[in-house]
């Protein structure tokens, strides 16, 4: 069953210029994806590919310019405000830097229980559930009355997770949740994420620039490039041949694996979106058709989609 779906969503931002309006930046160009119940969908891509904007759309923090955002089968932005507000708590987020996303003047106990209190839970109930959540994410009870700055980075991320899950949401969007953490702490949080996902039966959209991390966690992976999804496949399929040339480039760029890599150039700016296939200026296999026609995202096997003229 699908819990969240984006259909052909686009998003542009107008840059501010000096005295006049700047150029328009198309950050997302007709992106579609769906998230199933109990699924972990990984979203990878380099900076500027639109993955964080996609996260904001999936969190209903922003409205797409075009396209539809469906949450629990309902067209979110066409619902009356009151219904939208009722759906909001069922979508939660965890960001990269919990030091920035947690209110520094609130105590850990209040931070974790706040979403529940906003739903009208009693003080007693909120306290019990908070203690229960702290146990589940591995926070000691003493942390209850501490402030965020008194905790380590890993502990703060545990607070963010407890806060996100206390309302039993359908979907949690995790935007680079372990990128600021040390290796040993990252492993703790990744395993905790897997454990919580199973316990709560929640679905994740897990966004990261780190492909090995995404492949470790996700069931399915979407690869983004310049505001488009160029490939979407079960994680296990990314070990097989026949992938999109950009996915191959990402895999070959993973350091320490001693792979042969045909690296060409740097990602272009969103202000100069290439015509045809967005990846053709860097693609080692580009042909004339790639400069002219944009390849559609087509199905190559039941769950594997890719957008490439050459595959």
């Amino acid at each position: 069953m699908t819990v969240l779906e984006l259909r052909e969503v686009s998003k542009s931002y107008r840059l501010r210029g000096f005295l006049r309006q700047g150029p328009e930046l198309q950050v997302l160009a007709g992106v579609s994806l769906s998230l199933k119940r109990h699924e972990i969908l990984g979203l990878v891509g380099e900076s500027g590919c639109g993955k964080s904007t996609l996260a904001r759309l999936a969190l209903a923090l922003e409205k797409p310019d075009r396209g539809e955002f469906l949450f629990l089968g309902r067209p979110y932005w066409r619902l009356p405000r009151r219904e939208r507000r009722g759906l909001r708590p069922r979508l939660q987020a965890v960001f990269q830097d919990p030091a920035a996303s947690l209110n520094p003047r609130m105590r850990i106990g209040d931070l974790i229980s706040e979403p529940l209190r906003l739903q009208g839970a009693s003080r007693e109930e909120a306290r019990n559930r908070t203690l229960e959540m702290m146990k589940m994410v591995g926070l000691p009870e003493e942390a209850l009355s501490r402030f965020p700055h008194q905790l380590s980075g890993g502990q703060r991320q545990r607070v963010a997770l407890a806060r996100a899950l206390i309302t039993h949401p359908e979907v949690v969007v995790l935007d680079e949740p372990t990128s600021a953490l040390d290796v040993s702490v990252q492993a703790q949080i990744l395993n905790l994420l897997l454990d919580l996902q199973r316990r709560f039966g929640v679905s994740y959209i897990f966004i990261s620039h780190d492909l090995p991390v995404v492949l470790y966690l996700a069931h399915r992976v979407a690869v983004m490039y310049l505001g488009e999804i160029v490939e979407m496949a079960p994680a296990a399929d990314l070990e097989k041949p026949g992938l999109h040339p950009y996915t191959e480039l990402l895999l070959a760029s993973i350091p320490g694996e001693r792979r042969k890599r045909p690296v060409i150039g740097e990602p272009p700016s969103l202000l100069q979106r290439p015509r045809g296939c967005v990846f053709h200026p860097r693609c080692p296999e580009a042909r004339p058709i790639c400069q002219r026609e944009k390849p559609p995202l087509r199905r190559v096997s039941p769950e594997h989609f890719l957008a490439c003229h050459r595959r």
């Binding site: 380590s152 890993g154 040390d182 290796v183 040993s184 702490v185 990252q186 492993a187 703790q188 990744l190 395993n191 780190d210 492909l211 090995p212 991390v213 492949l215 470790y216 070990e239 895999l251 993973i254 320490g256 694996e257």
Partner: peptide, 18 residues
């Protein structure tokens, strides 16, 4: 053992911190 590589199935967790 805590560092994810391609093909890692299980990350071993080292408790605590530096």
């Amino acid at each position: 053992a805590a560092f994810p590589r391609l093909g890692t199935r299980k990350l071993e967790v080292l408790p605590g911190q530096v």
